[in-house]
Amino acid sequence: MLPVVDAANLSLDRRQAVGIVGESGSGKTMLCRALIGTLARHGAEITAGTVRFGGLDLAAASERVWRGIRGREIGYIPQSSLAGLNPVLTVETQLVESISAMGTLSRRQARDKAVELLERVRIPRAPQVLKARGHQLSGGMRQRVMIAAAIAQSPKLLIADEPTTALDVTIQREILSLITQLRHELNMALVLVSHDLAVIEDVCDDVMVMYAGASVESGPVAALSKTPRHPYTRALRVSRVDRALPGQDLDAIPGDAASVGSWPAGCRFWPRCSHADEECRRGSQPALMPIGRQLSACIHAERLVVGEQLPAVANQEDSARRRK
């Protein structure tokens, strides 16, 4: 067995929204599975570390304990959930499944509850939609149904793994504002995984950045986007297309993605980092250390950003538009 995540740190308060960004394959989804107790279904387990929720330690919790938490206290929208809605079953059949977990309800009660849930996720003509089959719904509608299932029991925390990846921008925006509204209505905390920093900047208070199984930076969204304190976070920002002109090469991080089983010694980012020196290659992945309002795992965090504040991309774009 190989470790796929081994230095991830994430914490959030009641009602707080935290985003996770990171390289693909860095372990975001595995971390989510650890937080919802489904690692075993994917042939993995927690071998070190703690998962605290309220007063409970869930890292070693039994399946019986998890059944009381999953769905009820923590809701989950898995990555690829659009593929998760069964195309041939009706919405009713699929929603009633999450509702019946709430206890013994009559068919009638479960159905009323399902209609109420669809209305809660702003689906018009809910009774008709309940009769529809998965394949008859648009991507945006399907994602609303998945959200309805995840919040059926008013969880205190919602974990959404790339909930808008497969949707176009107009629908993406609707879904993100729905999630934000539900968060306020239900007093829910939110963990939102996205590879799009702009999405996280719109929706979350804090952000945690992952690279090769480790948290490399975290802190308030605004602070990280203005003064990233880890070279990987910085690289994510400069590789955005809206910072390049057509015909220009984009600033991709040189070198290959770090792969599980062959992480380098020292800081895992050093082979791709222009700031790396001898010290970076020694020992193991550096721990997160506080710097300003952030935490960074870069041992050179202090000298990283002197004199090179990044302009906020959104502002840049807006002013470009205004000039026209």
């Binding site: 390289e23 693909s24 497969a166 590879h195 690289a235 993605a257």
Partner: peptide, 20 residues
């Protein structure tokens, strides 16, 4: 068809550079 919808921004930049 939406070739970068699931990859991070740096991998996206690599793919776009490759396509170009």
């Amino acid at each position: 068809d939406e070739p970068t919808s699931s990859i991070d921004q740096s991998a996206q930049a690599q793919l776009l550079n490759l396509l170009r």
